[in-house]
């Protein structure tokens, strides 16, 4: 079978080359940078752990990591809570011939630039924005509510974006569930709630986990939304990393912090992967 093997390698090679060039090599380079010294405004090629030590020694950097994880966790939970009902309605309540239109409407926000979307939210939430103007005009509040430039605004901006993403992954899981399962359970006298809890929810969880992980990865490393909607009043990891680059071009420190963030993402990935593997092994 050598011919088949070499043909197999031929198919794999482009993807392998792509991964090597655009993931493995940059990653190794970043790992090297994280272990080099930054001194007198220049990168010194001296191996050291001092960037990692500096990260651990500075409470404001550790707090940035905690802030990022809190914001991301809140975003994931809210996005799942909003996306699941939406995906369920799309999968089971919207007539099949209208599902495609509904899906297009659901993903419509993706067609807008991420930056434009964040600034649009700012115009909605700002002191003179739509919400405050309406509340003031209706006499509900006397002074504008502080809706923008805080953690809540960041989470709102993230949730708006990721609810759409999660809706797609959950919808894909829901439509794969064999409808006969529901019919059989109903025939056996199960209530709608019981059918949902014992059949629909467990079988759609892989879609939820995959979507939640994608949301986690993108949100934890996002710089734009916290910068625009968060107003920079608290430091998240992407901001802390950018501070090292934009104000000092301290690539070693920025690399070390990026790798810490990447390690956290990897831990979450392995936890999700393990859960999915265990679950698939446990399934009949």
């Amino acid at each position: 079978m050598p011919g088949r093997d070499s043909r197999g390698w031929g198919y794999v090679l482009p993807a392998l080359a792509w991964t090597l060039a655009f993931f493995v090599l940059p990653f190794l380079l970043m790992a090297c940078y994280s272990l080099w010294r930054f001194d007198a405004g220049k990168v010194q090629h001296v191996w050291t752990y001092e960037n990692y030590e500096a990260f651990i020694a500075r409470p404001h950097f550790l707090q940035a990591l905690v802030n990022s994880l809190e914001v991301t966790a809140l975003t994931v939970v809210l996005s799942v809570l909003l996306a699941y009902p939406l995906a369920w309605i799309l999968a089971f309540r919207v007539p099949r011939h209208l599902q495609k239109i509904a899906l297009v409407l659901a993903v419509l926000p993706f067609w807008t630039s991420y930056l434009v979307r964040s600034y649009s939210w700012l115009l909605v939430l700002s002191d003179r924005g739509i919400v405050n103007s309406a509340l003031l005009a209706a006499g509900i509040v006397e002074t504008p509510l502080e809706l923008a430039h805080n953690r809540g605004a960041t989470v709102l901006g993230f949730t708006h974006f990721f609810t759409m993403l999660l809706t797609l992954t959950i919808f894909a899981s829901l439509v794969q569930i064999n409808p006969h399962y529901h019919a059989a359970a109903a025939d056996l006298g199960a209530s709608r709630l019981r059918i949902f809890l014992r059949i629909t929810l467990p079988l759609s969880l892989p879609g939820v986990v995959v979507g939640a992980f994608l949301t986690f990865v993108v949100a934890v490393g996002d710089f734009v939304t916290p910068q625009i909607l968060g107003g920079g009043t608290e430091l998240l990891m992407p901001q802390a990393i950018m501070l090292q680059i934009s104000r000092y071009v301290n690539l070693p420190m920025a690399s070390a912090m990026s790798l810490v963030l990447m390690a956290v993402v990897s831990l979450v990935f392995f936890a999700c992967a393990r859960w999915l593997r265990v679950r698939s092994q446990a399934s009949p």
Partner: peptide
Amino acid sequence: NVGVIGDIATIQTALATGD
């Protein structure tokens, strides 16, 4: 007392939008 910290575009927007 600080409501916004940001780059030039951010603080200019904050002043313009009344934030």
